[in-house]
Design a protein around this nucleic acid. Structure first.
Lengths: 338, 338
DNA sequence: GTGAAAGCGCTAACAA
DNA sequence: TTGTTAGCGCTTTCAC
């Protein structure tokens, strides 16, 4: 079927060594020989066997990307950036969806199932900081979002506390006073929601307001559906919010949807701010104000971390904690109330 | 660093053969031996070397998924299904984004760059039917969407002509007569847009209407931005459509956005129908009517095709053309005009 | 400039 | 039940 180096060598009347040199472009080969080998290569349609190369090299050229789910816009956009950035570095990305299953996350982190990838980028969901402190892994890991206090992994994330504070302050600045938060996830070990809640409360206190538990609406997952349910609950409970800070854009879009259905005018009666900067928000009616993390930089920096660890495994650089820039993109959904 | 079978064998005082048996669970091993080996395995934290296994097995356990882009919702949802379905079959998915680059598509199809995957699922964008008729490939390929008349690859797709016809007929049934089409891509070899245009025209003719070129608005890509531009063009040109059939949901959402901005009431003055069944549409204001392909089945059937070809390469089953069910999900954006 | 051959880590055919 | 060993296809050291 597919031909090996040996076949090509036989056809060209040279040794495998020479063919290998021609294929890789390394070593020195006489012009005449090269041409003959190339002809044989073409004739047989030679394709290198990647597994053999990998075995030899001790590397696979593969990196893993483990995310909760690929279908939600934020992770889709992020994965796209990572795959793209990896391609530029001649790495191929294998994708795992954990669906927030703690066992799946553990399995990936501890490398059970074999050493397939040269490095792993993981966006943990179910595992808390303590569990991320792994020990028995042999490939470099980069954590997206979650902190890992005593671990060995680099971390790349935006400053969630600060960003949430800014989003909330923006609402306060436009005169909103009953600002609801949609997105706390007390049932998870996950840090992200916790940090955004902290930032939200900080902003309120900074404005002399007391955080009101009735305005903090917990969710199980972060999809539009959850946002819609949370918004419905807030409206039905008579909490009368004049603004909503949703911890993700999807939640915000769900909330926006319910507001629209209920005839609540956005932004006049209710301002809405999301988080993630997904493309949908831009085209929502009204367009969604949101905290935009620089996803390109998340991808870029995460890969840079992996590259450094993979290519200089000796260097004992301590775990990096890389903070990615973000900005608040103000759009129609939080325009001045008046 | 990481230990090999040989190290484990030495520690347990057995041969590699026995360790291999324990690891794989195959062969028969005395209970007492097994326990001893397992202890050694645990102590050393043994992780199988996948590259070595692959070389030995002649398979990598990897399948490729090549799509134009991962960040758009349709491909994100589709990729999610495929990764999920692959995980269930113990395959790992490596993702390539072609960004509609014909060379990237060619490279993946002809296997230049080495034999990394056991099979390839590709959603072509730039290459037309004739170019997809490849010859020199050695792994099975499944095409999503595009037909490949004389090729060797299986194909999985919805009936685009029929689906587009149904969508258009639905608009006709509610009394719309000036139905615009947003989405033709005359600059591409890609078949999908062509088929949807055909279905659209068929429906019009079936209703005794003459397709009007002025109502067919071409686009370069299929994003919200393109839909917005197309809608703007239609409105500015004074074509006065009373409905829009957009070839993708993203285009439809862009159109919806512009309609909203311009104060065109949907669905009263303008009905909108999309194609793809992405989640955003459900939460748009108003919710988007759309043709929903069964993405789970696309993934399932595509993987089934690969599995059949990979595990029974001998069988000379002719290329399959698998038609996936779809349905029209009617929502607010195309409610009765009355 | 080129050939011969070792060896990457694993599985399985062959032996015992 | 278990040990020995060949060999998957490649790269590269060593020798010429």
């Amino acid at each position: 079927m597919s031909s090996r180096l040996k076949d090509v060598a036989a056809l060209a009347g040279v040794s495998t060594r020479t063919v290998s040199n021609v294929v890789s472009g390394s070593g020195s080969v006489a012009e005449e020989t090269r041409a003959r080998v190339q002809a044989a290569l073409d004739e047989l349609g030679y394709r290198p066997n990647v597994a053999a190369r990998n075995l030899r090299a001790g590397r696979t050229g593969l990196i893993g990307l483990a995310i909760p789910e690929l279908y939600s816009p934020y992770f889709g956009e992020l994965a796209s950036q990572i795959v793209h950035a990896a391609q530029e570095r001649s790495w191929t990305v294998v994708i795992d969806q954990t669906f927030g299953d703690p066992d799946a996350e553990r399995r990936l982190l501890d490398g059970t199932g074999g050493r397939l990838v040269d490095g792993l980028i993981i966006s943990p969901w179910a595992l808390g900081p303590e569990e991320l402190t792994n020990t028995s892994r042999d490939v470099p890991v980069v954590l997206l979002g979650e902190r890992q206090p005593h671990g060995l992994a680099d971390r790349v994330a935006v400053d969630n506390v600060l960003a949430a504070e800014e989003a909330t302050s923006h609402l306060l600045a436009s005169g909103r006073r009953r600002i609801a938060a949609i997105g706390p996830q007390p049932h998870l070990r996950n840090e992200t929601a916790r940090q955004r809640l902290e930032g939200y409360r900080n902003a309120l206190r900074g404005a002399g307001l007391q955080p009101d538990r009735a305005l903090e609406q917990a969710v199980t997952t972060l999809h539009r559906k959850d946002g819609a349910e949370a918004m419905t609950a807030l409206l039905d409970a008579g909490t009368r919010p004049d603004a909503v800070f949703a911890f993700t854009d999807e939640l915000a879009l769900g909330a926006l949807h319910v507001a629209h259905q209920r005839g609540v005018s956005v932004p006049r009666e209710l301002a809405v701010v999301g988080f993630d900067g997904i493309e949908d928000g831009q085209y929502a009616n009204p367009p969604l104000t949101t905290v935009v993390p620089d996803k390109r930089q998340i991808a870029e920096r995460a890969l840079q971390c992996l590259a450094d660890r993979i290519y200089s495994p000796a260097s004992a650089v301590p775990p990096l904690d890389i903070v990615i820039p973000h900005h608040l993109e103000v759009r129609g959904s939080s325009a001045q109330a008046d």
